[in-house]
Design a protein around this nucleic acid. Sequence first.
DNA 1: GCTAGAAATGTGATATTATAACCTTTCATA
DNA 2: TATGAAAGGTTATAATATCACATTTCTAGC
Lengths: 166, 166
Amino acid sequence: MAKPRFPAPDHDHQACLSASLERAESAYVEAGGRLTELRASVLRELAASHQALGAYDVIQRLSAAGRRVAPISVYRALDSLLEVGLVHRIESRNAFIACHEAHDESRPILFLVCDACGTVAESGEEGLNEALGNAARNAKFTLDDTVLEMTGLCEHCAGREGTRGH
Amino acid sequence: MAKPRFPAPDHDHQACLSASLERAESAYVEAGGRLTELRASVLRELAASHQALGAYDVIQRLSAAGRRVAPISVYRALDSLLEVGLVHRIESRNAFIACHEAHDESRPILFLVCDACGTVAESGEEGLNEALGNAARNAKFTLDDTVLEMTGLCEHCAGREGTRGH
DNA sequence: GCTAGAAATGTGATATTATAACCTTTCATA
DNA sequence: TATGAAAGGTTATAATATCACATTTCTAGC
Ligand SMILES: [Zn+2]
Ligand SMILES: [Zn+2]
Ligand SMILES: [Zn+2]
Ligand SMILES: [Zn+2]
């Protein structure tokens, strides 16, 4: 994985969005499911933001876009997207983000969450894997999954503390 | 911090419990608050278990012990205990554990959570700190806090998969 | 095309986790 | 023993997540 980076406020975001949806199609083909209208809609709302959104945020946005969806439907769509790896869950926020890159399944992902703007960057930092493996080995722990999240200020917010959103 | 370890099913748990409550007294003196009856009761329920308990689990246990407490009261007690460092929150479970050791404040804590028995071990694995620092630096991220949690099977459960609780 | 089974979604209710607003009690200290 | 701050009580409600069951949509096989 590349160096972790926070998207610049003025990056070509339309590209992010369409890349995300294109990747979704092939991910579902490979995984053996279907990118349904609902799932695509949910993914679109997440991909349209680099911020972590709660399930009910997604519902509101879909509603604003003219589509009323029940919580359970959104959760089911999110579950499916999570399984396929198109979406990540940010545990410390009870929120979700669209994944903007492919991952090496064997490596845990470190999420960097900006407290000011809510933007999330992903990192595959080398060395992390080894340290975690050591910890597991020392404790005789059979590792299944990891949750790695850092909170703080992204480079775009650090300079102008006190603001909300880019 | 010592090597991360899962407490053996037959360890001297009474010692854990009284150590935890003794430490609580001095922690509050140092931090400038008071270990009130309510806070001690909440801590006692958590310390009586090495498992992560939800706030409502704590309420039930207190209730079973003859003490009815409202959710908000337990959450307030938990907030206080968290501030003083006597309790940790496990984000991936929306649950809490009593801390069974003192921590170097400058280092993040890695929690190892057993999926079978719910027991949680703490690790201060060397190398983790450096890897996290690198990730933050690479992303120009101003680090505030970290959440590090691993799930899997503890050494006591790995051998007898399918069981619940020790 | 038609149809049985599987997968996905809809519907309505409800469970679980957490906090708001406001009032009363407890406690340190002067 | 008055006083203010900290802690806790009471009631209501917000925010997050899931259950149970009906309906619709899709896929295969005929
Ligand atoms: Zn973008
Ligand atoms: Zn930011
Ligand atoms: Zn113990
Ligand atoms: Zn276990």
